[in-house]
Design a protein around this nucleic acid. Structure first.
Length: 467
DNA sequence: TGAAATGTTGGGGCG
DNA sequence: ACGCCCCAACATTTC
Protein backbone atom coordinates (compact mmCIF):
# COMPACT_ATOMS: atom_id res chain seq x y z
CA UNK A 1 0.00 0.00 0.00
CA UNK A 2 1.21 3.44 -0.85
CA UNK A 3 0.27 4.55 2.65
CA UNK A 4 2.86 2.19 4.08
CA UNK A 5 5.51 3.36 1.70
CA UNK A 6 4.91 6.92 2.82
CA UNK A 7 5.08 5.84 6.43
CA UNK A 8 8.43 4.30 5.76
CA UNK A 9 9.74 7.79 5.09
CA UNK A 10 9.56 9.19 8.57
CA UNK A 11 9.93 12.79 9.65
CA UNK A 12 12.82 13.79 11.84
CA UNK A 13 11.73 16.28 14.50
CA UNK A 14 14.89 17.92 15.70
CA UNK A 15 14.41 19.26 19.24
CA UNK A 16 16.56 22.26 20.19
CA UNK A 17 15.65 24.03 23.42
CA UNK A 18 11.97 23.34 22.78
CA UNK A 19 11.67 20.27 24.95
CA UNK A 20 7.90 19.92 25.05
CA UNK A 21 5.17 18.02 23.26
CA UNK A 22 2.48 20.63 23.70
CA UNK A 23 2.27 23.84 21.66
CA UNK A 24 5.36 22.84 19.74
CA UNK A 25 4.84 23.95 16.12
CA UNK A 26 7.46 21.68 14.53
CA UNK A 27 6.30 18.63 16.44
CA UNK A 28 2.60 19.46 15.90
CA UNK A 29 3.13 19.81 12.17
CA UNK A 30 4.92 16.48 12.00
CA UNK A 31 2.18 14.73 13.96
CA UNK A 32 -0.44 16.21 11.67
CA UNK A 33 1.08 14.57 8.61
CA UNK A 34 0.36 11.12 10.03
CA UNK A 35 3.86 9.94 9.15
CA UNK A 36 6.22 8.14 11.47
CA UNK A 37 8.18 10.51 13.69
CA UNK A 38 11.77 10.33 14.84
CA UNK A 39 12.35 12.73 17.74
CA UNK A 40 16.01 13.71 17.83
CA UNK A 41 18.29 15.61 20.16
CA UNK A 42 21.87 16.44 19.26
CA UNK A 43 24.46 17.53 21.79
CA UNK A 44 26.49 19.83 19.59
CA UNK A 45 30.28 20.19 19.90
CA UNK A 46 31.55 22.65 22.46
CA UNK A 47 31.66 26.23 21.32
CA UNK A 48 31.94 29.65 22.95
CA UNK A 49 28.38 29.62 24.27
CA UNK A 50 27.41 25.97 24.41
CA UNK A 51 25.50 24.91 27.51
CA UNK A 52 27.02 26.20 30.76
CA UNK A 53 27.58 23.97 33.78
CA UNK A 54 24.27 24.62 35.54
CA UNK A 55 22.33 24.55 32.26
CA UNK A 56 23.77 21.13 31.47
CA UNK A 57 22.23 19.76 34.66
CA UNK A 58 18.84 21.09 33.69
CA UNK A 59 19.30 19.88 30.13
CA UNK A 60 19.99 16.31 31.22
CA UNK A 61 16.94 16.30 33.48
CA UNK A 62 14.58 17.81 30.94
CA UNK A 63 15.73 15.39 28.22
CA UNK A 64 15.12 12.43 30.54
CA UNK A 65 11.65 13.81 31.16
CA UNK A 66 10.99 14.39 27.46
CA UNK A 67 12.15 10.87 26.68
CA UNK A 68 9.80 9.43 29.26
CA UNK A 69 6.91 11.58 27.97
CA UNK A 70 7.65 10.17 24.52
CA UNK A 71 7.92 6.61 25.81
CA UNK A 72 4.48 6.57 27.40
CA UNK A 73 3.19 7.52 23.98
CA UNK A 74 5.02 4.72 22.25
CA UNK A 75 7.98 6.75 21.01
CA UNK A 76 11.48 7.61 22.25
CA UNK A 77 14.16 10.24 21.94
CA UNK A 78 17.20 9.59 19.74
CA UNK A 79 20.21 11.27 21.36
CA UNK A 80 23.34 11.92 19.37
CA UNK A 81 26.59 13.70 20.16
CA UNK A 82 28.50 15.54 17.47
CA UNK A 83 28.12 17.84 14.46
CA UNK A 84 24.41 18.01 13.70
CA UNK A 85 25.13 18.31 9.99
CA UNK A 86 26.89 14.95 9.95
CA UNK A 87 24.47 13.35 12.37
CA UNK A 88 21.34 14.34 10.47
CA UNK A 89 22.85 13.13 7.21
CA UNK A 90 23.64 9.82 8.90
CA UNK A 91 20.09 9.60 10.26
CA UNK A 92 18.56 10.27 6.86
CA UNK A 93 20.56 7.44 5.35
CA UNK A 94 19.77 5.02 8.17
CA UNK A 95 16.07 5.72 8.46
CA UNK A 96 15.00 6.74 4.97
CA UNK A 97 13.63 9.97 6.43
CA UNK A 98 12.71 12.54 3.83
CA UNK A 99 11.81 15.45 6.07
CA UNK A 100 13.35 17.37 8.93
CA UNK A 101 11.21 19.72 11.02
CA UNK A 102 12.55 22.13 13.60
CA UNK A 103 11.69 25.32 15.44
CA UNK A 104 13.92 28.24 14.60
CA UNK A 105 16.67 29.46 16.83
CA UNK A 106 18.16 32.94 16.80
CA UNK A 107 21.59 32.80 18.41
CA UNK A 108 24.56 33.38 16.09
CA UNK A 109 25.95 29.86 16.27
CA UNK A 110 22.54 28.19 15.95
CA UNK A 111 21.62 30.33 12.97
CA UNK A 112 24.81 29.52 11.11
CA UNK A 113 24.61 25.78 11.86
CA UNK A 114 21.01 25.68 10.66
CA UNK A 115 21.83 27.61 7.50
CA UNK A 116 24.62 25.20 6.65
CA UNK A 117 22.40 22.18 7.24
CA UNK A 118 19.65 23.67 5.14
CA UNK A 119 21.86 24.29 2.15
CA UNK A 120 23.57 20.94 2.57
CA UNK A 121 20.45 18.80 2.85
CA UNK A 122 17.70 20.72 1.08
CA UNK A 123 18.16 18.77 -2.14
CA UNK A 124 17.79 15.46 -0.33
CA UNK A 125 14.97 16.19 2.04
CA UNK A 126 12.20 18.57 2.91
CA UNK A 127 13.36 20.90 5.66
CA UNK A 128 10.73 22.96 7.44
CA UNK A 129 11.42 25.52 10.14
CA UNK A 130 8.73 26.88 12.46
CA UNK A 131 8.32 29.75 14.88
CA UNK A 132 8.01 28.28 18.33
CA UNK A 133 10.31 30.21 20.61
CA UNK A 134 9.00 33.77 20.83
CA UNK A 135 5.89 35.88 20.70
CA UNK A 136 7.33 38.05 17.92
CA UNK A 137 9.37 36.98 14.91
CA UNK A 138 12.77 38.70 14.68
CA UNK A 139 13.23 37.92 10.98
CA UNK A 140 10.23 40.02 9.97
CA UNK A 141 9.63 42.62 12.67
CA UNK A 142 11.24 45.96 11.82
CA UNK A 143 10.74 49.49 13.01
CA UNK A 144 9.19 52.21 10.87
CA UNK A 145 12.55 53.09 9.36
CA UNK A 146 13.10 49.48 8.36
CA UNK A 147 15.89 49.03 10.87
CA UNK A 148 15.78 46.67 13.86
CA UNK A 149 14.54 48.11 17.13
CA UNK A 150 17.06 49.32 19.69
CA UNK A 151 14.59 50.76 22.15
CA UNK A 152 12.16 48.63 24.07
CA UNK A 153 8.95 50.65 24.19
CA UNK A 154 8.44 51.13 20.44
CA UNK A 155 9.37 47.48 19.97
CA UNK A 156 6.79 46.44 22.54
CA UNK A 157 4.08 48.62 21.04
CA UNK A 158 4.74 47.29 17.56
CA UNK A 159 4.60 43.69 18.81
CA UNK A 160 1.20 44.28 20.35
CA UNK A 161 -0.01 46.00 17.21
CA UNK A 162 1.19 43.27 14.88
CA UNK A 163 -0.18 40.57 17.17
CA UNK A 164 0.46 36.85 16.89
CA UNK A 165 -1.33 33.55 16.55
CA UNK A 166 -2.14 31.67 19.67
CA UNK A 167 -2.55 28.06 18.66
CA UNK A 168 -3.11 25.86 21.66
CA UNK A 169 -2.47 22.19 21.06
CA UNK A 170 -2.29 19.14 23.27
CA UNK A 171 0.02 16.22 22.60
CA UNK A 172 -1.38 13.09 20.94
CA UNK A 173 -1.92 9.97 23.03
CA UNK A 174 0.11 7.89 20.61
CA UNK A 175 3.18 8.94 18.69
CA UNK A 176 4.05 6.62 15.82
CA UNK A 177 7.76 6.07 15.48
CA UNK A 178 9.87 3.48 13.70
CA UNK A 179 10.56 0.46 15.88
CA UNK A 180 13.48 1.10 18.20
CA UNK A 181 16.37 2.23 16.04
CA UNK A 182 19.26 1.61 18.41
CA UNK A 183 20.93 4.63 16.96
CA UNK A 184 22.95 7.15 18.81
CA UNK A 185 24.10 7.33 22.37
CA UNK A 186 22.38 6.81 25.66
CA UNK A 187 21.35 9.97 27.40
CA UNK A 188 23.22 8.86 30.51
CA UNK A 189 26.48 8.69 28.59
CA UNK A 190 26.31 12.13 27.02
CA UNK A 191 24.66 13.92 29.95
CA UNK A 192 25.40 11.93 33.10
CA UNK A 193 23.34 12.24 36.27
CA UNK A 194 24.64 14.83 38.73
CA UNK A 195 27.64 13.54 40.70
CA UNK A 196 29.12 16.47 42.57
CA UNK A 197 27.56 17.79 45.73
CA UNK A 198 26.78 21.27 44.37
CA UNK A 199 25.10 19.71 41.35
CA UNK A 200 22.89 17.51 43.48
CA UNK A 201 21.96 20.30 45.85
CA UNK A 202 21.22 22.69 43.03
CA UNK A 203 19.10 20.41 40.90
CA UNK A 204 17.12 19.07 43.85
CA UNK A 205 15.46 22.45 44.21
CA UNK A 206 13.70 22.36 40.91
CA UNK A 207 10.94 20.36 39.29
CA UNK A 208 12.02 19.94 35.72
CA UNK A 209 10.13 19.18 32.55
CA UNK A 210 6.97 20.08 30.68
CA UNK A 211 4.46 18.96 33.30
CA UNK A 212 6.27 20.83 36.07
CA UNK A 213 6.43 23.95 33.90
CA UNK A 214 2.70 23.90 33.16
CA UNK A 215 1.96 23.38 36.81
CA UNK A 216 4.20 26.25 37.82
CA UNK A 217 2.47 28.55 35.35
CA UNK A 218 -0.90 27.54 36.71
CA UNK A 219 0.15 28.09 40.31
CA UNK A 220 1.58 31.49 39.45
CA UNK A 221 -1.39 32.74 37.50
CA UNK A 222 -4.00 31.55 39.94
CA UNK A 223 -2.06 32.75 42.98
CA UNK A 224 0.99 34.95 42.94
CA UNK A 225 0.15 36.97 39.84
CA UNK A 226 -2.16 39.28 41.78
CA UNK A 227 0.81 40.43 43.86
CA UNK A 228 3.18 40.80 40.93
CA UNK A 229 2.94 44.55 40.31
CA UNK A 230 3.50 45.35 43.96
CA UNK A 231 5.94 42.63 44.84
CA UNK A 232 8.07 41.89 41.81
CA UNK A 233 10.90 44.19 42.83
CA UNK A 234 11.26 42.72 46.32
CA UNK A 235 13.56 39.72 46.13
CA UNK A 236 12.55 38.54 49.60
CA UNK A 237 8.91 38.07 48.68
CA UNK A 238 9.03 35.57 45.83
CA UNK A 239 6.18 37.30 44.01
CA UNK A 240 7.58 36.23 40.67
CA UNK A 241 6.88 33.29 38.38
CA UNK A 242 10.26 31.46 38.42
CA UNK A 243 9.39 30.32 34.88
CA UNK A 244 12.64 31.51 33.26
CA UNK A 245 14.45 28.15 33.15
CA UNK A 246 11.35 26.44 31.81
CA UNK A 247 11.10 29.05 29.06
CA UNK A 248 14.81 28.83 28.35
CA UNK A 249 14.53 25.11 27.65
CA UNK A 250 11.18 25.48 25.94
CA UNK A 251 9.44 23.19 28.40
CA UNK A 252 6.54 25.54 28.04
CA UNK A 253 5.55 27.61 25.04
CA UNK A 254 5.66 31.38 25.47
CA UNK A 255 2.46 31.60 23.45
CA UNK A 256 0.75 29.20 25.82
CA UNK A 257 1.89 31.47 28.64
CA UNK A 258 0.42 34.48 26.88
CA UNK A 259 -2.82 32.62 26.20
CA UNK A 260 -3.17 31.62 29.84
CA UNK A 261 -2.67 35.22 30.97
CA UNK A 262 -5.43 36.41 28.64
CA UNK A 263 -7.76 33.72 29.95
CA UNK A 264 -7.01 34.66 33.54
CA UNK A 265 -7.70 38.34 32.89
CA UNK A 266 -10.97 37.53 31.19
CA UNK A 267 -12.11 35.61 34.24
CA UNK A 268 -10.73 38.09 36.75
CA UNK A 269 -10.47 41.62 35.32
CA UNK A 270 -8.84 42.90 38.51
CA UNK A 271 -5.72 41.04 37.39
CA UNK A 272 -5.35 43.31 34.35
CA UNK A 273 -2.65 45.57 35.75
CA UNK A 274 -0.54 42.70 37.07
CA UNK A 275 -1.00 40.72 33.88
CA UNK A 276 0.16 43.67 31.80
CA UNK A 277 3.18 44.24 33.99
CA UNK A 278 4.18 40.60 33.73
CA UNK A 279 3.37 40.33 30.03
CA UNK A 280 5.60 43.31 29.42
CA UNK A 281 8.47 41.42 31.05
CA UNK A 282 7.93 38.54 28.67
CA UNK A 283 8.50 40.95 25.81
CA UNK A 284 11.87 41.97 27.23
CA UNK A 285 12.87 38.43 26.40
CA UNK A 286 11.60 38.83 22.84
CA UNK A 287 13.40 42.15 22.61
CA UNK A 288 16.68 40.58 23.71
CA UNK A 289 16.28 37.92 21.02
CA UNK A 290 15.57 40.55 18.41
CA UNK A 291 18.70 42.49 19.34
CA UNK A 292 20.90 39.38 19.32
CA UNK A 293 19.47 38.18 16.01
CA UNK A 294 19.97 41.48 14.22
CA UNK A 295 23.28 42.31 15.92
CA UNK A 296 24.91 38.89 16.36
CA UNK A 297 28.24 40.46 17.34
CA UNK A 298 26.71 41.62 20.62
CA UNK A 299 27.42 38.34 22.37
CA UNK A 300 31.06 39.48 22.31
CA UNK A 301 31.05 43.24 21.65
CA UNK A 302 28.95 46.15 22.85
CA UNK A 303 25.97 47.06 20.73
CA UNK A 304 27.04 50.66 20.90
CA UNK A 305 30.50 50.88 19.40
CA UNK A 306 31.63 54.02 21.15
CA UNK A 307 31.92 52.01 24.36
CA UNK A 308 34.64 49.84 22.86
CA UNK A 309 37.43 51.90 24.34
CA UNK A 310 36.06 51.89 27.86
CA UNK A 311 38.90 51.09 30.21
CA UNK A 312 38.11 47.95 32.16
CA UNK A 313 40.19 46.91 35.12
CA UNK A 314 41.73 43.51 35.66
CA UNK A 315 40.65 43.04 39.26
CA UNK A 316 40.92 39.26 39.52
CA UNK A 317 40.73 39.32 43.32
CA UNK A 318 37.60 41.45 43.26
CA UNK A 319 36.05 39.19 40.67
CA UNK A 320 36.72 36.10 42.78
CA UNK A 321 35.20 37.73 45.87
CA UNK A 322 32.17 38.67 43.80
CA UNK A 323 31.68 35.12 42.52
CA UNK A 324 31.93 33.75 46.05
CA UNK A 325 29.50 36.23 47.57
CA UNK A 326 32.23 37.73 49.72
CA UNK A 327 32.28 41.38 48.74
CA UNK A 328 31.20 42.59 52.16
CA UNK A 329 28.01 44.15 50.76
CA UNK A 330 25.11 42.10 52.13
CA UNK A 331 22.68 42.44 49.22
CA UNK A 332 25.39 41.65 46.66
CA UNK A 333 26.65 38.65 48.61
CA UNK A 334 23.10 37.37 49.17
CA UNK A 335 22.47 37.48 45.42
CA UNK A 336 25.68 35.68 44.52
CA UNK A 337 25.00 33.01 47.14
CA UNK A 338 21.46 32.51 45.90
CA UNK A 339 22.92 32.04 42.44
CA UNK A 340 25.46 29.49 43.59
CA UNK A 341 22.98 27.55 45.69
CA UNK A 342 20.02 27.52 43.31
CA UNK A 343 21.16 28.44 39.79
CA UNK A 344 18.78 31.38 39.96
CA UNK A 345 18.79 34.99 41.08
CA UNK A 346 15.99 37.50 41.42
CA UNK A 347 16.12 39.98 38.57
CA UNK A 348 16.42 43.09 40.73
CA UNK A 349 19.45 41.53 42.40
CA UNK A 350 20.91 40.51 39.02
CA UNK A 351 20.92 44.19 38.11
CA UNK A 352 22.58 45.10 41.39
CA UNK A 353 25.36 42.52 41.26
CA UNK A 354 26.01 43.30 37.60
CA UNK A 355 26.23 47.01 38.25
CA UNK A 356 28.53 46.38 41.22
CA UNK A 357 30.89 44.19 39.20
CA UNK A 358 31.05 46.48 36.16
CA UNK A 359 30.96 49.82 37.92
CA UNK A 360 32.39 49.60 41.42
CA UNK A 361 34.90 46.87 40.60
CA UNK A 362 35.43 47.90 36.96
CA UNK A 363 35.43 44.30 35.75
CA UNK A 364 34.47 43.69 32.11
CA UNK A 365 30.81 42.75 31.62
CA UNK A 366 31.87 39.64 29.66
CA UNK A 367 33.52 38.22 32.80
CA UNK A 368 30.21 38.57 34.61
CA UNK A 369 28.29 37.21 31.63
CA UNK A 370 30.51 34.11 31.58
CA UNK A 371 30.00 33.52 35.29
CA UNK A 372 26.24 33.81 34.92
CA UNK A 373 26.42 31.56 31.89
CA UNK A 374 27.89 28.75 33.93
CA UNK A 375 25.86 29.21 37.10
CA UNK A 376 22.35 30.13 35.97
CA UNK A 377 19.92 27.36 35.10
CA UNK A 378 18.06 29.85 32.92
CA UNK A 379 21.20 31.08 31.13
CA UNK A 380 20.02 32.22 27.72
CA UNK A 381 22.43 33.91 25.32
CA UNK A 382 19.98 36.59 24.25
CA UNK A 383 18.79 37.58 27.72
CA UNK A 384 22.19 37.18 29.34
CA UNK A 385 23.98 39.30 26.74
CA UNK A 386 21.24 41.88 26.78
CA UNK A 387 21.14 42.13 30.55
CA UNK A 388 24.88 42.49 30.97
CA UNK A 389 25.20 45.14 28.29
CA UNK A 390 22.26 46.99 29.76
CA UNK A 391 23.98 46.88 33.15
CA UNK A 392 27.32 47.92 31.75
CA UNK A 393 25.61 50.80 29.99
CA UNK A 394 26.74 49.81 26.51
CA UNK A 395 23.65 47.96 25.27
CA UNK A 396 20.18 48.59 23.90
CA UNK A 397 17.91 51.01 25.69
CA UNK A 398 20.79 52.23 27.84
CA UNK A 399 20.20 55.09 30.22
CA UNK A 400 21.16 58.55 28.92
CA UNK A 401 23.39 58.87 31.97
CA UNK A 402 25.95 56.59 33.57
CA UNK A 403 23.87 54.60 36.01
CA UNK A 404 25.58 53.25 39.11
CA UNK A 405 23.37 51.41 41.57
CA UNK A 406 24.20 52.03 45.20
CA UNK A 407 23.93 48.55 46.74
CA UNK A 408 23.11 49.92 50.21
CA UNK A 409 20.41 52.31 49.04
CA UNK A 410 18.89 49.64 46.80
CA UNK A 411 18.99 47.12 49.60
CA UNK A 412 17.10 49.45 51.95
CA UNK A 413 14.57 50.17 49.24
CA UNK A 414 13.89 46.66 47.97
CA UNK A 415 14.68 44.46 50.96
CA UNK A 416 13.66 46.81 53.77
CA UNK A 417 13.36 44.13 56.45
CA UNK A 418 16.44 42.29 55.25
CA UNK A 419 14.43 39.13 54.62
CA UNK A 420 16.32 38.26 51.46
CA UNK A 421 19.70 39.01 53.01
CA UNK A 422 18.97 36.85 56.04
CA UNK A 423 17.82 33.99 53.86
CA UNK A 424 21.18 33.72 52.15
CA UNK A 425 23.59 35.10 54.74
CA UNK A 426 23.07 33.33 58.07
CA UNK A 427 25.92 35.35 59.65
CA UNK A 428 23.74 38.46 59.43
CA UNK A 429 20.52 37.05 60.84
CA UNK A 430 20.94 38.67 64.23
CA UNK A 431 21.05 42.21 62.80
CA UNK A 432 18.16 44.67 62.77
CA UNK A 433 16.64 46.06 59.59
CA UNK A 434 18.38 49.33 60.42
CA UNK A 435 21.93 48.02 60.26
CA UNK A 436 21.74 44.92 58.10
CA UNK A 437 22.11 46.74 54.77
CA UNK A 438 25.39 48.38 55.65
CA UNK A 439 28.82 46.94 55.01
CA UNK A 440 31.28 46.64 57.87
CA UNK A 441 29.06 45.00 60.47
CA UNK A 442 30.90 43.21 63.25
CA UNK A 443 31.48 39.55 62.52
CA UNK A 444 31.15 40.07 58.77
CA UNK A 445 33.88 40.53 56.20
CA UNK A 446 35.10 44.02 55.45
CA UNK A 447 33.86 45.52 52.15
CA UNK A 448 36.32 44.96 49.32
CA UNK A 449 35.74 48.47 48.00
CA UNK A 450 34.69 51.82 49.36
CA UNK A 451 31.48 52.72 47.53
CA UNK A 452 32.35 56.36 46.92
CA UNK A 453 35.84 55.43 45.72
CA UNK A 454 34.56 52.77 43.31
CA UNK A 455 31.88 55.09 42.08
CA UNK A 456 34.11 58.03 41.30
CA UNK A 457 36.71 55.78 39.69
CA UNK A 458 34.01 54.36 37.41
CA UNK A 459 32.79 57.86 36.54
CA UNK A 460 36.35 58.92 35.76
CA UNK A 461 36.88 55.94 33.41
CA UNK A 462 33.57 56.71 31.78
CA UNK A 463 34.48 60.36 31.24
CA UNK A 464 37.82 59.38 29.69
CA UNK A 465 36.23 56.88 27.31
CA UNK A 466 33.95 59.57 25.95
CA UNK A 467 36.69 61.96 24.82
C1' DT B 1 14.07 49.32 35.88
C1' DG B 2 19.31 55.80 39.66
C1' DA B 3 22.16 58.65 42.69
C1' DA B 4 23.65 62.71 44.52
C1' DA B 5 23.26 67.55 44.73
C1' DT B 6 20.27 71.11 45.29
C1' DG B 7 15.84 73.24 46.36
C1' DT B 8 11.50 73.60 49.05
C1' DT B 9 8.47 73.07 52.80
C1' DG B 10 6.75 72.57 57.28
C1' DG B 11 6.89 71.30 62.12
C1' DG B 12 9.14 71.76 66.59
C1' DG B 13 12.43 73.77 69.85
C1' DC B 14 13.75 77.79 71.78
C1' DG B 15 14.99 82.44 72.97
C1' DA C 1 3.25 85.47 69.85
C1' DC C 2 7.00 85.69 66.92
C1' DG C 3 11.19 84.99 64.40
C1' DC C 4 14.91 82.13 63.86
C1' DC C 5 17.23 77.89 63.30
C1' DC C 6 17.47 73.06 62.46
C1' DC C 7 16.43 69.27 59.95
C1' DA C 8 13.63 65.68 58.13
C1' DA C 9 10.82 64.75 54.30
C1' DC C 10 9.88 65.44 49.80
C1' DA C 11 10.56 67.46 45.13
C1' DT C 12 13.53 68.96 41.34
C1' DT C 13 17.65 69.04 38.75
C1' DT C 14 21.82 67.30 36.93
C1' DC C 15 24.99 63.88 35.53
Amino acid sequence: MSHNIEREQPIIVWFRDDFRLQDNPAFDAAVKTGQLIIPVFTLEPKNRWSYGEASKLWLGATLRQLNSDLKVRGSYLVCLKGEPNTLLQFLIEKTNARSIYWNRRYDPSGVSVDKAIFSNLKSRCDIKSFEGRLLSEPTTLKSGGGTPYKVFTPFYKMCLKVGFDIAVSSPPDRIMSPSLLNLGDSLESILPQPQLQWQKVLIKQWSIGERAALKKLDTFISGTLQQYSEGRDFPGRGHISFLSPHLRFGEISIRRVWYEIQCAVELAPQLTACAEAWGRQLFWRDFAYSVLFHFPYTSEKPLRGESNDYLWLDDEGGFISWTQGKTGFPIIDAGMRELWATGFMHNRVRMLVASFLCKHLGVHWLKGAEWFWNTLVDADLASNTFGWQWSAGCGADAAPYFRIFNPVTQSKKFDPEGVYIKRWIPELRHLTSKTIHEPGNEGYMQPIVELSVGRSAALARYARSKC
